[in-house]
Simulated scan of single mutants.
Amino acid sequence: MGAALHLAHVQQTPVKKRRPKRTGGGGGDGYDKLVTRVYQDPRMTPEARELILLLAWLTVRDPNRFDEDGNLIRNWRKRASDILGEYGNGRRNESRLADLVYADRPRYEPPHLPWGEQVCGAPMIRRQGTCGQPARGHDYEVDLETGWWTPVYFCRRHEQWGRQMHQQRVSGLAPEPIPNAGGLLPSYFAGSDSKAQERLKAWARLYKEAAVWKLDRFWEPPKEYGLCADDWPTPGMEPTEEPEPFRLHLAAVDGERVDSGMTR
């Protein structure tokens, strides 16, 4: 993963040249607060947890994070890749780092179709209720406020109704769905200072690089809701004022550039 990024935590004092190499961190570096937040976050996935904790450790606790002059080493790629490793699949070496970034790409995940015998949900005209006959096909109904999908099933008699649901979904008239998966990495590392937008742009490039590496040509960043899961609305819940969560900072090189490539 060739994204060469700056990792600089919120409260770290700049290290002077020729200062002896540091070997550890204390509670004041914010690491403990971030780890606590990770384990208490109900949105957390195994992949996001693995990478967030690794990046936090590389930022403030890795004893090899300083060079011989005592300066913080900005490029975390090689250290992260060495720890996570690679694996072969017969064609090329896969990047565990790319796997973890791709798993956290911001996206909307439609509901999985339930198993078992399904019945037609088409509304009946001459009586109240739905058809109820055994289904022979399915599609999704789109919520015109959230953009979220709900599975619908139809029988042979109501195939036209099923086609209408399909046309509504693919017409482009439905809103962009509110993301409900991924977006945890920028929630923990984008920060909220004047450089936050630059970091979010860097994350967008990293997610795209990971998608290309995983042969996903279709992923694009959410246009309306952004990359950060902390910023996404939750349908059915009113927004509430909450304290700013503790974050570490992850900035692109010079605040602008992210080099391409997802291999070591």
Rank of each mutant, 00 (worst) to 15 (best):
K21H: 07
Y225F: 15
L100C: 05
R163F: 07
A210N: 01
E256F: 10
K223G: 13
I73N: 00
D139F: 10
V142C: 07
T146L: 03
G90W: 04
Q197W: 09
A3E: 06
G121L: 06
L173C: 08
N71D: 13
P123N: 03
L144S: 14
T36V: 07
Q168G: 13
T234P: 04
Q133L: 12
E224Y: 10
R96V: 12
K17D: 14
R74A: 15
E244D: 15
L7G: 10
T36M: 03
A56C: 13
R49V: 04
W148H: 15
Y102Q: 06
K17Q: 11
F154C: 10
T23N: 06
R92I: 08
Q12M: 14
Q167K: 09
E94V: 07
G25F: 08
Y225S: 01
A252W: 05
P177T: 10
L250A: 09
R169D: 00
S171A: 14
G182E: 05
Q11W: 11
C120N: 05
L250K: 01
P110A: 08
L7Q: 10
D231W: 08
A8Y: 14
G172V: 08
N180W: 09
R257C: 00
D32W: 03
F246K: 04
P151C: 01
S81F: 08
M165N: 11
M165Q: 14
H6L: 12
N89C: 09
Q197G: 12
W149Y: 13
R169G: 09
G116N: 02
G26R: 01
T234Y: 02
A48M: 00
I52Y: 05
K223A: 14
R247A: 12
Q164H: 12
R217I: 06
H112Q: 14
G26E: 00
A204E: 09
G28Y: 00
R74H: 13
C131R: 08
N93H: 11
R264M: 15
L144F: 14
E94Y: 01
E242T: 15
V253I: 08
W219G: 04
D82C: 05
N64F: 12
W149L: 15
R43Q: 15
T150P: 01
A4S: 10
G147Q: 09
Q118A: 12
H138K: 07
R156N: 12
L5T: 08
R61M: 10
G226Q: 04
K201D: 10
N64C: 05
R49I: 02
Y225M: 03
I83Y: 03
R105Y: 05
T234H: 00
E109A: 15
L184E: 09
E68M: 09
R217D: 14
Q160W: 11
V38N: 02
E244N: 14
D230H: 07
Q118D: 04
L250Y: 06
Y188N: 05
E68K: 10
G26T: 00
Q128E: 14
A98L: 03
G129V: 06
P243G: 03
A229I: 02
K201W: 13
Y102R: 01
E68Q: 14
E198M: 12
G27T: 03
V142S: 10
D32P: 02
D62P: 05
N89V: 13
E242N: 12
R264T: 13
R43T: 06
E117D: 12
E244K: 12
M44C: 05
D69G: 00
Q168S: 13
E109P: 00
